Computed example of a mutant assay.
Amino acid sequence: MESCKPLAIFFEAISRDARICSTHIGLFAAILNYWQVNGFPVPMRAYAHEIMPLAKIAASTTYHRCIRDLHDFGYIFYEPSYKRNQPSSIYLKTEMSDDE
C-alpha cells in the first residue's frame, strides 16, 4: 500500500491547514490517480488538460491557481514547462515535515 502513502500524508497535513479547499483536495486526488495509472513515474509529467477533467476543474485559471497553491504550501513540487508541446513535472511528497 505504498502508493497510498502520499494520500495519507496529504490528509494528515491538510487537517491543520485552513488554506486548503475542496478544489485543492480534488486536484491532489486527480494528480495522485494520474500518477498511479501511469505507473508511479518520478517525476510525473502531465499536461493541465489531462489532469483538469479528472479533478472536475473547467477553468485553466482555477487549475493553475490551485496547483501553484499546492506547490507554495509544500504539498507537491510543481515545475511548469511553459511550453505547449512539453508537459509540466510534478513531484509528490512522500514525507511532510512538522513545519508544513
Rank of each mutant, 00 (worst) to 15 (best):
L70W: 08
L27F: 05
E95C: 12
P80H: 03
M52L: 06
Y75C: 01
A48C: 07
Q86W: 09
M44V: 04
A58M: 10
K83A: 12
Y75N: 02
C66Q: 11
D98Q: 15
M44D: 00
N85F: 05
L92H: 11
Y91G: 04
Y78F: 14
I31C: 00
A8H: 12
A29S: 07
E2G: 11
R68L: 04
E50M: 01
G74K: 06
F40K: 11
F77S: 05
N33C: 00
I9G: 04
E12A: 12
A58V: 13
E100W: 13
E95M: 14
H24Y: 08
F11W: 10
E50P: 05
C21D: 15
G74E: 01
D99E: 13
S97K: 15
A8W: 13
I76H: 02
S89P: 08
N38K: 06
A13K: 15
W35H: 07
A13H: 11
S22C: 10
S15I: 11
L7R: 11
C66S: 10
Y82I: 03
I76L: 06
F73S: 00
H24K: 12
H49F: 08
L92D: 10
A8Y: 14
R45C: 02
E12I: 13
K93F: 10
I57G: 06
N38W: 05
L92V: 13
Y63G: 06
S60I: 15
G26Y: 08
A30S: 06
W35M: 00
M44F: 06
Y91M: 09
R65V: 02
P80T: 01
A58C: 07
R84D: 07
G74P: 08
N85D: 08
D72Q: 09
H24A: 04
S22W: 12
I31M: 03
F10W: 10
D17S: 05
R84A: 08
A13V: 14
Q86V: 15
L27R: 03
F40P: 00
R19A: 09
K83L: 15
A18E: 15
F28Y: 12
N33P: 00
F77M: 05
L32Q: 01
S88L: 06
H24L: 07
I51E: 00
H71L: 02
P41L: 05
I67T: 02
C21H: 14
L92Y: 12
E79K: 14
Y78I: 04
I14D: 02
I9H: 09
R65L: 07
M52H: 07
S22K: 13
T23N: 11
S60V: 15
G26H: 07
S88G: 07
K56T: 03
G74N: 03
A46F: 12
F10V: 08
Y75K: 04
R84K: 13
T23W: 03
E50K: 06
I9M: 13
A55Q: 11
R19I: 07
P43V: 02
I51K: 01
Y34W: 02
I90T: 08
K56F: 02
P80L: 02
R65Y: 09
